[in-house]
């Protein structure tokens, strides 16, 4: 019996699951947008623009979900500034939740900057200076920082779970890598679904589809490493009809293997993208509830 079975569940449920899901999409989409912004072609601009919009709206939604989930939402700022020592900064690099609060804030700021640049590029904001800045070196730098912060957001959510004493989450060091890979695949899937509305070309979509295939393979390999690294604890998860089934059928079957098959057959990429998004959501759902559902060992044992 792992020593993690004696800890209490933190009641991180729907808001946090949605936050992890949206954070992964926003981070992944921003990373892909920045890659195309730096190294892509003019024909990729619709995907770049879509990616920055997804990142900005995702970051804003993440901040709202995190705040609403707090027991005292009006004290959200206590994570950023020392309430008893205003205005001294509150930051603990070794605490993933403290690190994450700053990542959400910074990612929000940089992705909104990129989105404003995109609005200027599209002519929705009449600012030639902003447009020039967005397409220049400064814009590229902002995009690069946004991409790094986006990947940090997607990955830290898994690290946050590993740095606890909860069963499953703290029994493996692979959750950060898993959520990051899932963020990349769901980010690509979101762009596949939304970018055509902004005029994305078939060639851009083909690149996204190809990247999504590779990200899904990476995700599957990490998922296997994660399950193996759990050791005997994985039986608690996989043998349960509820969350074990969601993981094997929902995440592995529908969320990874089925879209891989669709991508390989060059089937309509939108269907594969929808399945990837479903899988990404179910991954977080099953991971969170599989551990949340394990009540303290002593209670379960009737002690």
């Amino acid at each position: 019996m792992s020593d993690t079975f004696f800890s209490g569940a933190p009641h991180w449920t729907w808001f946090i699951i949605l936050y992890f899901f949206v954070g992964g999409i926003a981070g992944g989409a921003c990373f892909l947008a920045a890659i195309l912004d730096w190294f892509g072609r003019t024909e990729d601009r619709p995907v770049v623009r879509t990616g920055y919009y997804v990142a900005a709206w995702g970051a804003i939604l993440c901040g709202l979900l995190l705040t609403v989930d707090l027991g005292q939402p009006l004290r959200f700022w206590h994570m950023l500034v020392q309430s008893h020592n205003f205005p001294t900064i509150m930051f603990k690099a070794w605490s993933p939740i403290s690190f994450g609060a700053w990542v959400v804030l910074s990612f929000g700021a940089f992705s909104v900057l990129s989105a404003l640049g995109v609005m200027a590029e599209e002519g929705r904001i009449a600012s030639p200076a902003l447009r020039a800045m967005h397409r220049g070196a400064l814009g590229k730098l902002v995009a690069g920082i946004s991409a790094l912060l986006g990947f940090s957001l997607a990955g830290y959510t898994g690290i946050l779970l590993s740095v606890t004493n909860r069963p499953i989450w703290a029994d493996s060091p692979w959750l950060g890598a898993l959520f990051l890979a899932s963020g990349a695949s769901t980010g690509a899937a979101t762009l596949i679904l939304l970018a055509p509305g902004r005029g994305a070309t078939e060639r851009s979509l083909a690149w996204l589809s190809s990247f999504d295939t590779q990200a899904l393979v990476v995700e599957l390999l990490i998922l296997v490493a994660f399950i193996v690294s759990l050791g005997s604890v994985n039986r608690v998860w996989l043998s349960s009809w509820g969350w074990g089934l969601v993981l094997l059928v929902g995440v592995v079957g529908l969320g990874i293997l089925a879209p891989l098959r669709l991508h390989a057959r060059r089937q309509p990429v939108a269907n594969a993208a929808r399945l990837v998004l479903l899988g990404g959501f179910l991954l977080r759902l099953a991971t969170m509830f599989a551990s949340e559902g394990i009540e303290r060992y002593r209670v379960a044992a009737g002690m």
Partner: peptide, 8 residues
């Protein structure tokens, strides 16, 4: 602020 990280 009730983030509940300490519980886990």
């Amino acid at each position: 602020n009730g983030c509940r990280a300490c519980i886990a």
